[in-house]
Amino acid sequence: MEEAVVVFYAGPFAITSIVITTWGIMLFLGVFCWLATRQLSLDPGPVQTMLEGIILLIEESIEAVSPGYAQQMMPFIGTLWIYIVIANLVGIVPELHSPTGNLSVTAGLAILVFLSVHWFGIRNEGVRYLKHYLSPSPILLPFHLISEVTRTIALAVRLFGNIMSLELVALLVLFVAGLLVPVPVLMLHIVEALVQAYIFGMLALIYVAGAMQSQQNEKGASL
C-alpha cells in the first residue's frame, strides 16, 4: 500500500493526495448536485428520478431502523453512504487511490460517528441520554466505555482494512498475472465498495438510532 503523498503544506497542515482526492470528490458531488437540482420539476427527468430514488432509498432505510427520525438523520447518514461509496469507487480510477483506504480518513469518519452518536442522543434525550451507560448496572459503565471505543475503532479499521486490501490485491494480481487479469478483482472492488459503504452507514445508523432511543429501550427493559 502506497503512502499518502504530501502535495503541499497549508500552514501546519500537510495536504496529502488523499485530502486532494477528498476535495475532488466534494467538488464533484457539489457541482453535480448543484447542476442536477437547479431545475427540479414535478415531472422528473432521468437524473432527477435517479436522485429521488437514492434519497427515498436512504430515507426508507433510516425510517426502517429509526422511525420518525429520517429527516433529522438523513444529512449525516446519507452523506456517509454517498461519500463512502464514491470514495471506495475512486480507487478503480487509475492513478487515484480510495481515501477510505487510508486509516486517517476512516478514523476521522469513525470519530464523527462516535461524536454524532452522543450529539443525537443528547439532542433528543437530553442529559438523561448518559444514564444508559449506567444501565442495567453502574458496574457495567467501564464495559460501555470500552464498547464505545472498540466499536469506533472497529468501524475505522474494518473499512480501512477492506478497501486497502482490495487495492493491494488488485495491485498484486496486476504485478503477478498481467494487464487484464485484475479486472474480476476490480469488479469485486465495486461490489465490496458498495457493501462496505452500506455496512459502515448502517452501523452508524444503528449506533445513532440506539443512542436516540436509549431511554425508550431502558423503559422497555424495566417493564
Binding site: A4, P12, F13, A14, I15, T16, I18, V19, T22, W23, I25, M26, L29, G30, C33, W34, A36, T37, L51, I55, M74, P75, F76, G78, T79, I82, Y83, P99, N102, S104, V105, A107, G108, L109, I111, L112
Partner: peptide, 22 residues
Amino acid sequence: ATFILEIINFLVLIWILKHFLY
C-alpha cells in the same frame, strides 16, 4: 492533519449535500 482535514471535509460535505441535494 489528514484526520482533522477529513473531519472538516466531511462536515462541509454534509452541508453541501444538505443544501444542494437532500
